[in-house]
């Protein structure tokens, strides 16, 4: 599952289509926020570019409506963006734009009920994260409460690029003890060989910074397609 920052280039919707052509199972769409606490330098920079290009929640939803792809779209942003828009309105707008799920990394489970109610009312899945620091009993509760899939953070870090698999195997195993919900691994997954290794213990990987870095560096949609295909091929091997 590739991750892109909406609005980070005027071609971002074309990059989403290219990622689908390259074999993505789903696409995670980052809606930019001014203070992305869980993001490393690459995604911070992309979010800043997107905001400078006047990207808003509404503009992202509007552009997503023009998109014709047959894989699930998942939105990722920070809670204040939805809160400010109004939780019910935000959930409804996302769903109308074809989004099936949302990831809010700063919305801890204990604070998530108002959002989950609004999202649930329009069948928008709320995807929860489990971190390496999460104790087993809490991980079990998170896995049981997560909808669509569970996001396993491979390491104690913000988004970025890393070379190893971190704690992914342990985090995924803990989630599996409590639920048979699909588990996707993210945070630091940047190379096809990592994806291949991680696919042995999980249902998929989320590749963010490595792709975003290319896109804000000026790579074209064909590059995005072949980048995603390199992961697809590694996973299918």
């Amino acid at each position: 599952m590739p991750y892109l920052v909406a609005g980070s280039t005027d071609q971002w919707v074309r990059h989403v289509e290219a990622a689908v052509l390259g074999g993505a199972d789903a696409i995670e769409i980052g809606i930019p926020f001014s203070d992305p606490m869980m993001d490393g330098p690459v995604i911070q920079a992309a979010a800043q570019i997107a905001l400078e290009r006047s990207t808003t929640f509404e503009s992202v939803c509007g552009e997503l409506e023009t998109l014709d792809v047959d894989v699930p779209l998942i939105a990722m942003t920070y809670y204040n963006v939805f809160l400010h828009h109004g939780l019910e309105r935000a959930a409804g707008r996302l769903r109308a734009a074809g989004v099936l799920g949302a990831i809010l990394p700063d919305l801890a489970m204990e604070e998530s009920n108002p959002w989950r109610e609004s999202a649930g009312a329009v069948d928008l899945a709320t995807i929860l994260l489990v971190a390496p620091s999460t104790p087993a009993d809490r991980a079990h509760r998170l896995a049981q409460a997560s909808e669509g899939f569970t996001y396993a953070a491979a390491r104690m870090a913000v988004t970025g690029v890393a070379r190893d698999d971190g704690d992914a195997a342990r985090v995924v195993a803990t989630i599996r003890e409590a639920s048979d919900i699909p588990v996707y691994v993210g945070i630091g997954v940047s190379r096809p060989v990592q994806a291949q290794e991680l696919s042995k213990v999980s249902d998929g990987v989320i590749v963010g910074s490595a792709l975003v870095e290319r896109i804000i560096g000026g790579s074209n949609v064909a590059d995005t397609e072949s980048f995603v295909r390199s992961f697809r091929d590694a996973l299918d091997e």
Partner: peptide, 19 residues
């Protein structure tokens, strides 16, 4: 939940909740 009336709370990434 760390609320002072309508304000406060704990809106942090899961990685920081245990801390």
């Amino acid at each position: 939940r760390g609320r002072f009336g309508n304000f406060g709370g704990r809106f942090v990434p899961e990685a920081l909740v245990p801390a």
